[in-house]
């Protein structure tokens, strides 16, 4: 365990030196900041825009980080031959794979945490700088239509930003307001799906080059996202032919291919709670916020899936010759 941790921490140290990571992170933060501007263009439901874009950015950029950082981790060790010294040490190869996986996961999760804090900060700051809130905060109403200025506009904004940032950090530890209601749960589920994708990135990089690994991981991500659509497509094929038994020729092949593909790739849509965050049913306790239930079966599914993929990665890596 201590050796896995040592490898994981070293992997994290290596990953944070990857420039791609910072480009992706900065881009994600820009998008979140920009979502506030975009929402002003909308004539209704501006919060929906900010939340949609923010959650989407966290998920997608988390994915990109896990791919672009992950595919190089094992490859670099082989290319630079540092793996020689690691393998000759008294550790198992699976300890190495697990160490790399957890190191990458730590990197991805630290980034998700940063993006989430920024996202919550944007939401709280948006809330605090609504014209009515600002006016209430910096003017005192003396009578109908009579106001007295009690605060500075700019000072208020700077203050609001820091308060929002503080609340944003607190939100990561369970604090919430109606605007951020159950968003942390959505992020949690996103993180779960990223754990699966990260495992795939590691799996592919145990036997192929970075470019191919990236392509494979992207394909897995796409098929995983479209899992349910592909299943529906297969069902439609069967329905058209009048039953699975009636399928012939290429249709039969397509059907079974789709069936296999949907059953072995992860169904990432199970872990997608974006829609619930904006349109979900009302919470039973607090009827003004949408409830995002955590489906523990799905969480168990995610964990077992990761374990399975990592076992396969270890199997491949254990038999691998390093030239």
């Amino acid at each position: 365990m201590g050796k896995i941790l040592a490898i994981a921490l070293n992997t994290f140290k290596e990953a944070v030196r990857n420039k791609v990571l910072y480009f992706l992170l900065i881009f994600a933060l820009l998008i979140m900041g920009f979502s506030s501007v975009i929402s002003d263009l909308s004539i209704a439901a501006p919060e929906k825009m900010v939340i949609d874009l923010g959650l989407g950015a966290i998920d997608f950029f988390g994915f990109l980080i896990s791919v672009f950082v992950g595919i190089y981790l094992i490859y670099n060790e082989m290319e630079r031959k540092t793996i020689y010294t690691i393998v000759s040490k008294p550790i198992d190869r699976q300890q190495f794979i697990l160490g790399k996986y957890f190191g990458l996961l730590i990197t991805v999760y630290v980034n998700i945490a940063i993006m989430s804090i920024f996202f919550f900060t944007v939401l709280y700051f948006r809330e605090a700088t609504q014209p009515d809130v600002v006016t209430k905060a910096i003017f005192k109403e003396l009578g109908p239509g009579k106001f007295e200025s009690v605060g500075n506009y700019y000072v208020y904004h700077v203050q609001a930003f820091f308060i929002a940032a503080g609340k944003g950090i607190a939100t990561l530890f369970g604090y919430w307001e109606p605007i951020t209601h159950h968003l942390l749960r959505v992020v949690f589920m996103s993180a779960m799906s990223l754990a699966i994708i990260t495992a795939f990135a590691i799996l592919y990089s145990t036997f192929s080059t970075p470019t191919l690994s990236a392509v494979f991981t992207f394909l897995t991500f796409i098929i995983g996202n479209l899992c349910e659509d592909i299943l529906r497509y297969a069902d439609k094929l069967a329905q058209k032919a009048g039953g699975v038994a009636q399928l012939v020729g290429p249709d039969k092949m397509k059907y079974w291919f789709a069936m296999v593909a949907t059953h072995i790739t992860p169904n990432l849509a199970l872990l997608d709670k974006f829609s619930d965050a904006v349109h979900g049913p009302w919470d039973a306790k607090t009827p003004t916020i949408h409830s995002v239930p955590i489906d523990w079966v799905v969480v168990v599914y995610g964990i077992t899936y990761v374990a399975g993929v990592l076992s396969l990665a270890c199997l491949i890596f254990n038999r691998r010759n390093f030239k």
């Binding site: 825009m49 949609d52 989407g56 998920d59 996202n225 829609s275 904006v278």
Partner: peptide, 9 residues
């Protein structure tokens, strides 16, 4: 993909 809400926005 799963980002159809963002696309809709």
């Amino acid at each position: 993909l799963r980002y159809d809400m963002v696309a809709a926005d």
